[in-house]
């Protein structure tokens, strides 16, 4: 009986806090994406020919966990099959947040764009009853920082 009550409490807590945290996170992601739109992140491997650039590696990482309620939903999905939307939003949030952090680092260096962006995903707390639990997403790329015009004239 006690276990059932605990389970229900955890479900309600997970549902409430999880929804609240997700909404808040999405709001902040969308807002920051708007401001960082001026800094394109491109997956192309070929850098632009024009202009002289200094380049540095930039990266951003995030570890995000799903809440208890969503994990329960995903468990149910395992019975019936189909899209596991609970985890889709988790990975979407992690990817977008990582890309934003990478862009923020690049923006701090006055970069013009980020090239050759790659993603790397890893599940962290693996092994605990085979649940995904939390994922880490790393986004990395090469930031191109325009060099002052005077330096390029000398060459």
């Amino acid at each position: 009986m006690f276990e059932l009550i605990l389970f229900l409490i955890l479900l309600v807590l997970g549902y409430g806090f999880g929804r609240w945290a997700e909404k808040r996170h999405y709001r902040s992601i969308i807002e920051r994406e708007k401001t960082l739109n001026r800094l394109p992140a491109i997956a192309s491997r070929i850098p632009p020919e024009k202009g002289r650039y200094r380049q540095t590696l930039v990266m951003g990482n995030t570890v995000i966990s799903v809440d208890y309620f969503k994990r329960f939903l995903a468990g149910l999905r395992n019975l019936f099959g189909g899209r596991v939307t609970a985890y889709e939003t988790l990975l979407d949030r992690a990817r977008r947040e990582s890309l934003l952090r990478m862009k923020e680092q690049a923006a701090g260096m006055n970069a013009e764009m980020v090239f050759n962006v790659k993603y790397e995903t890893a599940s962290i707390s693996k092994g605990r009853r085979d649940t995904i639990g939390s994922v880490e997403v790393l986004a990395y790329g090469t930031a191109l920082i325009p060099e002052p015009a005077s330096a390029s004239d000398q060459d």
Binding site: T62, V63, V66, D67, Y68
Partner: peptide
């Protein structure tokens, strides 16, 4: 893991 959200400690660690 119950409430969901970012695990800041792990982000820093990694």
């Amino acid at each position: 893991n119950i409430f969901g959200g970012e695990l800041k400690g792990y982000t820093e660690l990694l």
